[in-house]
């Protein structure tokens, strides 16, 4: 049952990542991989919100496999993030590679906290 919820979330999350990545990449001219950066930050915000809601006692038992493991898990990606960082470094953009790692991790952490705090306020 939980597995089906994970699949249902991932079937939406993975194409949503691709479409968001495309939409962001078509709107800027730099080599920085803003598409993956934005989609990972958005997934962190959502998963932080879900975690905060669960801690506040809201949400049914199916919310975590559907929205957390499935949707947010498939919406975010570590493989594309690390491959893009490798490409930046290999092509000589060492500063952008470091900025991508530090920026993604710090913004991801901040987004988790923001989502969690907002959800706790909403569902408290």
């Amino acid at each position: 049952m939980n597995w089906l919820l994970v699949v249902a979330g991932a079937v939406v999350g993975a194409p949503l990542r691709y479409l968001t990545d495309r939409a962001v990449q078509s709107r800027h001219d730099s080599v920085f991989p803003w598409g993956t950066f934005v989609v990972n930050a958005a997934a962190c915000l959502l998963l932080g919100g879900l975690t905060g809601a669960v801690l506040a006692g809201a949400g049914s038992s199916g919310a975590v496999p559907l929205l957390g493991t499935g949707l947010c898990g498939a919406l975010s990606t570590y493989s594309t993030f690390s491959y893009e960082t490798l490409r930046l470094a290999e092509r000589g953009w060492k500063f952008l590679a470091v900025a991508n790692v530090l920026g993604s991790v710090l913004v991801g952490l901040g987004a988790v906290h923001l989502g969690s705090q907002v959800a706790r306020q909403l569902f408290a």
Partner: peptide
């Protein structure tokens, strides 16, 4: 691979 790996769970676990 995008669906297998996850950045959001990593960040939530870190947090």
């Amino acid at each position: 691979l995008g669906g297998f790996t996850t950045f959001s769970t990593y960040a939530v676990e870190f947090s």
